[in-house]
Simulated assay, not measured.
Amino acid sequence: MSIKEYIKSRWDNHAKKYDNISAHGINSEKDKRAVRSALQEILGDRKKVLDVGCGTGFLSLILAELGHDVIGVDLSEGMLSKAKKKAEENGYDILFKLGDAENLPFDNDSFDAIVERHILWTLPNPEKAINGWTKLLKNGGKLILIESEKKEGNVGNHHYNEEIARELPFSNGIDLEKFKEIANECNLTFKVETLDCEKINLMIVCEKTC
């Protein structure tokens, strides 16, 4: 089984109980208000937004609530099934597609913004992913990453076995120095904001400059 097949299987199996775990998604009203307010300030009026690794759709729903045209992509059919059900129940017209965050099925210069929450740590090739996301952005488009700072040890071990976790460069949180190098190579500006949240503390906002 390849690493991607393993990761896909892991999240398919996890989909049913994903929303019941407090560390996942954006579950508290405090965190939702903080994320909603930050996205509203950054994105402004209606935009075409891609939610990469959308999971069960928690971030896609916030974006739709703000009035944006949203497409959500995930590697897991189980996660997408939950996301589609939530969108239907809340009356949001969100397109959810099966796709690999490192090889997305869209044309270049397609989106005003791309957002993700805790996806980089799951990727074996985050540099390839960020480069691909940048190409999908229009000039001046925003890349918004909601992540956790690098921690001691390997946080990925609580989701994957040690062998798989070793293959994920950001498995113990995002290394800001390494990310800065990647952003510079991709012609992205780079700034870090902190969020007043219980479960999320870091928002990285990039802009495509050319």
Rank of each mutant, 00 (worst) to 15 (best):
Y6D: 13
S28E: 02
E167P: 07
V205H: 05
A101R: 03
I71A: 07
E163P: 04
N27V: 07
V49Y: 08
L59F: 04
G132E: 06
L50Q: 01
N125H: 13
R33W: 08
I182L: 07
K138L: 00
N103C: 13
K86A: 10
E102M: 05
L202M: 08
K86G: 04
Y18E: 00
R36F: 01
S28V: 01
V70R: 03
L168V: 06
K191C: 12
F179L: 15
P126I: 00
I146H: 02
I3A: 14
D107L: 15
K191H: 15
L61P: 00
W121I: 13
K180T: 10
D74A: 05
V52F: 03
K32V: 11
W11D: 01
K32Q: 11
E177Y: 13
K85Q: 13
S171G: 09
V192M: 09
K178E: 15
N13D: 13
T56F: 00
I119M: 12
G57K: 00
E41N: 04
K4T: 02
F179G: 05
E185C: 09
I94C: 07
E198N: 03
V35I: 15
H118K: 14
P105G: 05
L66M: 01
N20E: 12
L188T: 04
T189R: 14
E147N: 09
N13G: 15
L202N: 08
C186Q: 10
K191N: 11
I62E: 10
R166V: 06
A83V: 01
S148A: 06
C210P: 06
L95S: 14
K208C: 08
L123W: 03
G67V: 05
C206S: 14
S81N: 12
P169D: 10
T209G: 15
I7H: 03
G78N: 15
G140I: 15
